[in-house]
Design a protein around this nucleic acid. Structure first.
Length: 225
DNA sequence: TTCCAGATCC
DNA sequence: GGATCCGGAA
């Protein structure tokens, strides 16, 4: 079995016992998932949680959110920082109502027309809301892949590197895009963090980063807690 | 102080 | 490619 297959299998296996539960993962509503993805941009999921619940219960549909006042949306999401997202959320809801018949677009081209929606968010919506086997590469997933496979990405932001998206695409087991991508996100959040928790990582024997660290006699710090 | 499920404008 | 947006937790 090659390394990539081993990686995929172990990530999926790890995820069976370590999946995080969030309300945006329970619903199949594309609009709820879109809202969640926008709130999750550069924002820890634990902090998004209460805001998402309030926003989604108060404005569950594009039509209802499109009629909200900006200050009202700002009050709800402002605590998360990156306040322009309040404007983006409102404009996106309006765009969905005006141009897409009140339904979240199910194609990349139209999703990218929504303000505040870039390649990552659009791909995440297609994957998680419309069950598409598309890669999603954020800074966290980029961190996992570059560490484990010792990928040398010159870009200061590997998550924007096209070759990394292609690499991620090849890893996805057919028909398992949502599960695999969710597993990567959780693995990055719980194990392969910026300060990695290598002591509880199931990839130690195949991870180039861990192997290199070991070779340097530079014991991996456990950073417990 | 750094870091965080990015996007936008320059 | 770089700067900026952003508050709050570690």
């Amino acid at each position: 079995m090659n390394k990539r297959s081993t990686f995929v299998e172990r990530i999926l296996n790890w995820h069976r016992n370590n999946r995080r539960n969030f309300p945006w993962r329970e619903t199949s509503d594309p609009f709820a998932k879109l809202i969640a993805e926008i709130l999750l941009q550069k924002t820890p999921a634990e902090r998004v949680l209460p805001v998402f619940i309030k926003l989604n219960s108060k404005f569950p549909t594009p039509h209802e959110l499109s009629k909200a006042g900006l200050s009202e949306v700002e009050d709800l999401v402002g605590a998360l920082g990156l306040k322009k997202r309040a404007i983006y959320l409102l404009k996106s809801a309006k765009t969905i109502v005006d141009k897409f018949n009140g339904k979240v677009p199910d194609n990349l081209n139209d999703l990218l027309k929504l303000p505040g929606v870039g390649l990552y968010t659009a791909s995440a919506v297609l994957c998680f809301a419309f069950n598409r086997d598309l890669p999603i590469v954020d800074s966290n997933i980029a961190r996992i892949l570059t560490r484990v496979f010792a990928l040398n990405i010159s870009s200061k932001r590997p998550q924007l590197d096209k070759s990394l998206w292609e690499f991620a695409a090849k890893l996805i087991p057919k028909g398992m895009g949502p599960r695999f991508n969710e597993a990567l996100i959780d693995f990055a959040a719980l194990i392969c963090k910026s300060k990695p928790r290598c002591f509880k990582c199931p990839l130690l024997d195949i991870c180039e980063y861990a192997l290199k660290t070991k070779k340097q006699k530079n014991p991996i710090k456990n950073n417990e807690k």
